[in-house]
Amino acid sequence: MDDEKIVGLYFARDELALSETEEKYGHLLKSIVTKALGSGADADECMSDIYLSLWSSIPPARPESLRAYACAIARNLSFKKLSYNLAKKRSADLSVSFDELEASLTNDAFAESIKKIEFREFFNRFLQSLRKESRVVFLKRYYFLDSIPEIAADLNITEGKVKSLLFRARKKFIHEIKKEEKA
């Protein structure tokens, strides 16, 4: 079933919308959740929350891309759960798996920086400024939490190239965020 019809089912309050979403995008959403939370009970709970959130937000929302919309919900709910777990010390810090991240992106000063600017607007301007391939690699790594070998295999490029693109994009990000903060 195409996305428009599934969204139509949400608008008609037909519960078939949920099973159609699960059938079409369940695997993708599960992969996002498990990369952040692992495959335990937290992930299962998060999956239920995703469908609940889709059900309660459509309508009024009418996403242009149901797939991207559902991914955004999956990611946000996963990170909410992760934050909760971290606060309760029930989980390892995810950024340990992202050891390429410079200290300037993981320290308290960065947390302060993002409070001072309109981050969403800034970040999407930054994404726009990247070349397409760099943007895709950047988001695969930091949005979808894919590993470097996974990205290399998926895009048919070398791991060295993935590292190189990420290094440059992060460098540019740090440069731009400092500029934005000063402005």
């Binding site: 993708l28 996403p63 242009e64 891309s65 797939r67 991207a68 919309y69 991914c71 955004a72 990611r75 946000n76 990170f79 992760l82 934050s83 971290l86 810090d93 995810l94 950024s95 992202f98 991240l101 992106l105 993981t106 960065f110 947390a111 993002i114 981050f119 969403r120 970040f123 999407n124 994404l127 397409k132 943007r135 895709v136 988001l139 695969k140 930091y142 949005y143 979808f144 939490l145 998926d154 895009l155 048919n156 490029i157």
Partner: peptide, 27 residues
């Protein structure tokens, strides 16, 4: 909390997420 950066990346517009999902590699 050390995941601020990763968390904030979640504010990417849906059009970019769709682009990633659609992207095909080149040799």
């Amino acid at each position: 909390m050390k995941n601020d950066f990763l968390e904030q990346v979640g504010t990417a517009d849906e059009k970019y997420i769709e682009e990633v999902l659609e992207y095909r590699s080149k040799k």
